[in-house]
Design a protein around this nucleic acid. Sequence first.
RNA 1: CGGGCCGGAGUAUGCCGGUAGUACAUCUGCUUUGGGAGCAGACAGACCGAGUUCAAUUCUCGGCGGCCCGACCA
Length: 414
Amino acid sequence: MRQSRLFTKARREAPTGEVAKNAQLLVRAGYIHKEMAGVYDFLPLGLRTLHKIIGIIREEMNAIGGEEVLLTTLQNPEIWKKSGRWDDTVVDVWFKTYLKNGGELGLGNTHEEPLAALMTEHISSYKDLPRYIYQFQNKFRNETRAKSGIMRTREFIMKDLYSFSKDADSHKEYYEKVAIAYENIFKRVGIGDKTYRTFASGGSFSKYSHEYQTVCDAGEDTIYIDVSKKLALNKEVYDDSEVYATSGITKENLKEEKAIEVGNIFTLGTKFSDALGLSYKNAEGKATSVYMGSYGIGPARLMGTIVELLSDEKGLVWPESVAPFSIHLVSLGKSGDDISKIADALYEDFVKTGVEVLYDDRDMSVGQKFTESDLLGIPKRIVVGRDAIATGTFEVCERANGEVVKKLRTELLA
RNA sequence: CGGGCCGGAGUAUGCCGGUAGUACAUCUGCUUUGGGAGCAGACAGACCGAGUUCAAUUCUCGGCGGCCCGACCA
């Protein structure tokens, strides 16, 4: 993409009042725009990165048998009344609204109820199980206090996977598969070494659930890590003696850290299938409740976590896997001169070979181009300058570590 | 939801109960081009409402909005 065609502009300063590092950098670099507290738009560069993250999650979900759907945001209260979760005192993050005829509606904050209701039409026999259904869908949560930039927002895309199994044993088996898929995801987006499977309270569904917590000072949660076991405990279960027996963690070895919850996996059991009438006939012809699990990841929060963890004083730093472009091609020529002709040709070559390249073809000062390039955080920068004419070489700079090498055109395209 | 701070050109800020100043950005012109260039000129601003006052951007109250701390996070 030609940068002259990119409508967003990088800015020197972050807006007043935006304190979170992730939002400061993403706003300055033109990846996102704040509409209001806890509500952010994704602009072209930000959307590309978000889509890269979503793509990685999708691959991992498909690899463990996930089938993708897209359920609605508008929610029918009748379904939620069956599980008791329409009540504002039970779920306090509802956004509710009205139909023209006065009927009440909700904006979905999660999708256990509608999906369980939907699956009653498709699951009737043990032969129909297991099923694994997931989506990337806009959730609405009326948080009392939005904070931390894109980490806790009132409207956000969530990947939510729901598993429908015959019984607790087959559920447990799949639950562990999801855990591995999650670990793959966090590894692939570049935060694997700082992300811990963490025991947390399970709510009313099961004794414990698991969170994936990424160690980071910007995090809202406090966890206790057993480094050798690569496991952790959320502070909320720290004083629960049973968790140590369950997890095999010993209290003495724990290290306290701040962390960001980047994912969670829950055992739901039959709570929702009982409430919504989701059952199947087993081999003996007996009606049996479907055993459910739910598994969430917030792609935007994951994006914010990557920013918090990997960016530096110059700006964003993306791993190749989630960068909006692989290469930032920066021309130091002026439109029409020899340098920019070489840059144009190189750009066309990259486009032809399918390389994702952002081409800074704008007429502006060198310093400004480099500073903006650093801010955008694209993994590799290729500079077309006087060397391109003098020696036919191009400077290639790694954003992450600043390493610079000179390469010939043929080496770049190889 | 409790507490605190804040609200002015596109962005960031200084001063101020009496003509809203500056920097950056933007536009025009000339020069400049390997780390946010220079000169000249131009465009552009007080969240809303009430009160006090001869006079309110400034003081007071209320609303709305933003950020932070805490609580909450099914």
